[in-house]
């Protein structure tokens, strides 16, 4: 009789394992959470559809899939912002992503956008969940150890945003006792903590929450790249960017390590966009001015 109990136990264990596997499999082929149905990037392996092509790695995967998966921000005005009304994500980064999709697949609509934050973007890229990151990401030596970058596609610099009428007029007025807000995983945190010794930045999950926190009076200063801060200013004109930039933040498009093919294609796309004037056009459309000359 006792052995019966054991048999039941074993059966239950097997059921459990099967249930677990089932869940994991489902995870790969159904995407309840995503906005689109598409194969998981990187999961496709080498494609069989276009033999004779010299494409390797991610580029081959993208072509086999027929869709580029780009990680952009959904909460950053001017670069990548989701509009609750239309459900569309719009911004400078999104337009760059469209251009790359067009270059790779001949159609800018063959693009799936996934939401990333400063905290989640590198893990998502390295998981193979997204093909590239176009998300206000500064090129740094530290990050180069984790990912590869394209050429610079936008030149930002760190600055500070304060409520109009604030006594803080530039970075020099920020002391270690100032209440400064930022975002987890952003370079701007290290920069300002080095510039103002002893300062501890309050860090939030994403820019939306950080800005909501600033407006709710949680701090005196929000710091990040001026480009992002200008977007916040547009959202709420009770706030202003003060002082000049105190760092250089060259944005790059991040691509998984050892994917030289995709890096090359992205750089070509950027060059073509600049040559054709399309780059200037979208730059002006979003940023409101012409890009500065080299």
């Amino acid at each position: 009789m006792k052995t019966r109990g054991r048999v039941i136990g074993l059966m239950l264990a097997v059921m459990l394992v099967l249930a677990g596997c089932g869940a994991a499999n489902n995870a790969n082929d159904s995407k309840g959470g995503g906005t689109n149905n598409s194969a998981e990037p990187g999961a496709g392996g080498n494609q069989a559809e276009n033999p004779g092509s010299k494409d390797e790695g991610v580029v081959a995967d993208i072509k086999a899939r027929g869709k580029l998966v780009a990680g952009v921000k959904f909460d950053t005005k001017l670069f990548g912002l989701k509009d609750p009304g239309s459900g569309e994500v719009e911004g400078f980064d999104v337009d760059i992503a469209k251009a790359i999709a067009k270059k790779l697949l001949g159609d800018e609509s063959k693009l799936e956008l996934k939401e990333v934050t400063s905290k989640t973007r590198i893990p998502m890229l390295n998981n193979g969940e997204i093909d590239l990151i176009i998300a206000t990401m500064t090129i740094t030596e530290d990050r180069k150890k984790e990912v590869d970058f394209s050429d610079v596609y936008f030149k930002a610099g760190q600055s500070i945003l304060v409520k109009k009428g604030s006594s803080i007029r530039s970075i020099d007025d920020v002391t270690k006792d100032s209440k400064v807000l930022g975002v987890k995983g952003a370079t701007s945190i290290k920069n300002i903590e080095e510039k103002v010794p002893g300062l501890k930045v309050q860090q939030y999950e994403n820019y939306q929450e950080a800005f909501t926190a600033l407006r709710a009076g949680k701090g005196d200063v929000l710091t990040t790249d001026n480009s992002i801060l200008y977007g916040m200013m547009k959202q709420d004109n009770n706030y202003e960017v003060v002082g000049s930039t105190f760092t250089d933040e060259p944005y790059g498009i991040a691509i998984k390590k050892d994917e030289a093919g995709l890096v090359k294609l992205v750089n070509e796309t950027l060059e073509e966009m600049k040559a054709s004037g399309e780059y200037d056009k979208i730059y002006e459309q979003w940023i409101g001015e012409k890009p500065a000359d080299e």
Partner: peptide, 9 residues
């Protein structure tokens, strides 16, 4: 690898 939905599940 799990999508956000399945990771949450």
């Amino acid at each position: 690898k799990l999508s956000p939905f399945w990771a949450a599940i």
